[in-house]
């Protein structure tokens, strides 16, 4: 009996039952843009960057299960425009000053901006007033750069077994908080936590190591995010 398959942008690709569209595409060498998704974590579909159209329905590919004969559109002008808009909104909603950010060249948001061809956002910058919590001796949170992907929340809970981070507030006031108190130093967060590495942007950082990798040797200096695979 042959493996089940689906159609991705006109190409038949196999999948293993239980896989999501994004996983099936990845196994077939097709990279679908994403931000909140991280291997090893339960997908949550919050950022919507991985949006595709499955059998005519707009879904997040990191959470939607692949199914037999499903027709998936990924690389289409309207979906690309939608992804661009989502990423643009993330840029203007926070304070992302790549030029002086130590995550520059390592940052998934910045890399995605380049990959999607965003030269300058068309939307108005919000310039919110946000704080830096540097109270912890070895790590800091710069809320200016947080995109609320919940990767730190999920990693701390599911992989570090700590629940050091949580969301507080609603709507535009939603932010990452140290779960045990108002300041990072009051939590169980530690410099060796995997949650620190989970941050796709420059929001959750180890102290005193910024800029130690020279320009030219940073992960996204030579190869775009997602590599050279198809998909945008």
């Amino acid at each position: 009996m042959s493996e089940p398959s689906l159609i991705l942008d006109g190409r038949e690709i196999p999948f293993v039952p239980g896989q999501t569209i994004l996983q099936a595409a990845e196994d077939a060498g097709a990279w679908i843009p994403r931000l909140c998704h991280k291997p090893g974590l339960e997908p949550c579909g919050s950022c919507r960057v991985c949006v595709v159209r499955a059998n005519g329905r707009t879904v997040s590919s990191c959470t939607f299960p692949a199914s037999l004969g499903m027709v998936v559109e990924c690389d289409t002008p309207d979906l690309l425009a939608m992804r661009r808009l989502i990423v643009e909104m993330l840029f203007v909603e926070g304070n992302h000053f790549c030029m002086s950010c130590e995550k520059s060249g390592h940052c998934e948001l910045q890399a995605l901006g380049y990959r999607l061809g965003i030269t300058a956002p068309q939307l108005e910058y919000q310039f919110p007033r946000r704080e830096v919590d540097a109270s912890h001796p070895d790590i800091l949170i710069d809320h200016n750069r947080c995109i609320l992907c919940a990767r730190c929340v999920r990693t701390s809970r599911d992989l570090d077994g700590k629940e050091a981070f949580a969301f507080v507030g609603r709507g535009p006031h939603k932010r990452i908080a140290a779960s045990a108190g108002s300041r990072l130093r009051d939590t169980s967060a530690d410099v060796s936590d995997r949650a620190i590495d989970a941050c796709p942007v420059g929001a959750l950082l180890r102290k005193r190591v910024g800029f130690s990798v020279p320009v030219g040797r940073r992960p996204y200096d030579a190869v775009p995010i997602g590599g050279q695979e198809v998909g945008r």
Partner: peptide, 14 residues
């Protein structure tokens, strides 16, 4: 002000 010190050499050159 408020920025981590290791960011300053990269920030102020702008």
């Amino acid at each position: 002000q408020g920025r981590p010190y290791w960011e300053v050499p990269v920030a102020v050159q702008r």
